[in-house]
Design a protein around this nucleic acid. Structure first.
Length: 278
DNA sequence: CTAGGATCCTGTCAGC
DNA sequence: TGCTGACAGGATCCTA
């Protein structure tokens, strides 16, 4: 999916289009993608918890949205705003084959697309949002987490690979497959290292790197996504703008020139410079 | 409790 | 051309 920076970018974009607008109807094209009964109401705010987005309505109900691997949110009105898993859908006519839910606002339409149907929209009472098991289980985001706290958690998973562990949202919240690879590269830590062998100093570097790669993505995310949507239909990968290792297997490492390799760690494709990361 | 693998689902791409 | 298996920006469930 869309990891924390993409969800944050979507949140910021949607704020402009749907806050104070009334949600008037919901069309469910895939039952699995919508949990609960449709609601109507005026949007009072949008919140983000890790990779989950929450749209609050003035009727004391909220829509919790998780895009998982292939979810997209595309708002169509006077102009189009799209975010999530990048694909042609950003510029296609909607709804289409991958549209799962259509939220009609007084002033525009929000399409929830999701190729693989792993994502969902869930209706919760606003008071229950923070009691939801997924949200309640989330750890702190890298900006709020202290080095010592992460270090202690890593020691609890001392026999697991560092990459698998930092992908666990209960350990640290927000990293996904891209930013895990990027943060490990930036801090010079090999993704297969056992957590028990990662020092306090390295934990500090890793945390700092996680904040930096995600900050950079959030800063560039909004504008590059907007550019993407205005484009002529060609597939734009905004990751290419800053990724050092992700999807760069075979290309030279930006630090040492060695070829980036792709390996498998914790069941996930993993990009690494075998020379820079120990 | 942790660790690792299977699983949910659709689509695309490489290799035969 | 058509088939097959691998794989995909996530998280949960099951097993040991």
């Amino acid at each position: 999916m869309p990891e924390l920076p993409e969800v944050e970018t979507i949140k910021r974009g949607l704020l402009k289009f749907i806050v104070k607008k009334k949600l008037v109807s919901t069309e469910i094209l895939c039952e699995k993608s919508f949990i609960g009964e449709p609601v109507k109401g005026v949007v009072s705010g949008i919140r983000r918890f890790g990779k989950a987005l929450v749209i609050d309505l003035d009727c004391n109900k909220s829509l919790m949205i998780h895009l998982r691997m292939t979810g997209q949110l595309i708002h169509d009105g006077k102009e189009r705003y799209a975010g999530g898993h990048p694909s042609e859908n950003f510029v296609s006519k909607l709804p289409n084959k991958q549209t799962r839910v259509v939220l009609e606002f007084e002033d525009g339409t929000l399409f929830f697309n999701d190729q693989r149907k792993f994502g969902f929209i869930k209706v919760l009472s606003t008071a229950e949002v923070e009691k939801d098991s997924f949200i309640r289980g989330l750890a702190k985001e890298p900006w709020a987490m202290k080095t010592e706290e992460l270090y202690e958690k890593l020691q609890r998973h001392k026999n697991s690979c560092i990459k698998a562990t930092i992908l666990d949202q209960k350990v640290v919240c927000g990293l996904g497959n891209i930013y895990a690879d990027e943060a490990l590269f930036a801090s010079g830590i090999h993704p297969e290292r056992k957590c028990g062998e990662v020092s306090l100093k390295e934990t500090e570097q890793l945390l700092k790197a996680a904040r930096e790669v995600m900050n950079k993505s959030i800063e560039s995310g909004g504008s590059t996504m907007a550019t993407y949507v205005k484009a002529d239909g060609t597939k734009g990968d905004y990751l290419e703008l800053f990724a050092q290792v992700f999807h760069r297997e075979g290309q030279p490492c930006a630090k040492c020139g060695n070829k980036i390799s792709k390996i498998r760690v914790a069941g996930r494709g993993t990009h690494v410079c075998e020379r820079c990361q120990k």
